[in-house]
């Protein structure tokens, strides 16, 4: 009995010292901002050969932080947990090409948009699939889970097609190349740069119209913030306007795109 208590005591001390080292408490301060990013959504965000993050969203994040005079850390998070992790305070803002939609606004607040591009379908050349309910009947469509594209295909074609939902956009590309799915639905820029222009992408093509229906596709990509952090949202809004005005935005944009993705 005595021996066991001694053991318990020893173990508790060990445990306590370990735990107290492990939990790094950090006080919230105004000039430290943690930003949630994704990392599997080229050309907006991807991981380079050196293991570092790169892409339009990443450059924009750093530019906005510089503008705000804030010290930023990027936190990587898979898409399907990206809003829950914001709400759980794992970071303070999401800069991950997230579209501003009514449904998301119920949970989080958004800044003004920082770009807007239409969504589009991609098919294999020669497959002849048309973007109509009849033409798509029985076909399988790959989308990233919990995106505007997921909502659109579920809402509009949900009864006609088989929907395959992926955790990462890259995984949907791999399965399109493998031939497990007949159509891809995603952002047109992401599809163009991340899929069609990659080696082997020339066997595929865009099909159907540019999709911009506000009910599903929202008002463009914005930065998501927790609803109570109104001050931070204000700072981001100011910074977006500032980098638009001082040419930083254009400089970043030219690195990735030949045309203006900010929209009207």
């Amino acid at each position: 009995m005595k021996r066991q208590f001694k053991l318990l005591f020893l173990v508790m001390i060990l445990g306590a010292s370990f735990v107290s080292n492990g939990w790094a408490g950090s006080k919230k301060s105004a000039d430290k901002v943690r930003i949630g990013v994704e990392g599997a959504y080229p050309p907006f965000s991807e991981v380079g050969k050196d293991g570092k993050m790169k892409g339009f969203d990443i450059d924009i994040s750093y530019a906005l932080c510089k503008e705000m005079g804030a010290e930023c850390t990027l936190v990587k998070q898979d898409w399907d947990g990206i809003i829950p992790a914001l709400l759980a305070k794992k970071y303070d803002a999401i800069i991950a090409s997230m579209s501003i939609t009514e449904k998301r606004k119920k949970k989080v607040a958004f800044t003004i948009k920082y770009y807007i591009t239409p969504a589009k379908f991609v098919r294999k050349k020669g497959s002849g699939i048309e973007i109509t309910k009849a033409g798509m009947k029985g076909k399988s469509v790959g989308v990233q889970s919990a995106t505007i594209h997921d909502n659109y295909i579920t809402g509009v074609y949900g009864k006609d097609v088989t929907i395959k939902r992926y955790g990462k956009q890259d995984e949907a590309y791999l399965d399109m190349k493998a031939g497990r799915i007949d159509l891809l639905l995603a952002d047109s820029i992401a599809l163009d740069d991340g899929f069609l222009k990659k080696p082997g992408g020339d066997a595929y093509e865009f099909v159907g119209p540019d999709l911009t229906e506000k009910k599903y596709f929202g008002e463009g990509a914005g930065i998501a913030i927790r609803k109570e952090d109104t001050e931070l949202a204000g700072r981001f809004n100011k910074a977006i306007k500032a980098i638009r005005a001082n040419g930083t935005y254009d400089k970043i944009q030219k690195k990735y795109f030949k045309f203006d993705i900010y929209g009207k």
Partner: peptide
Amino acid sequence: DLAGGSTH
């Protein structure tokens, strides 16, 4: 996973 996705 990321490298496989980037390089296909």
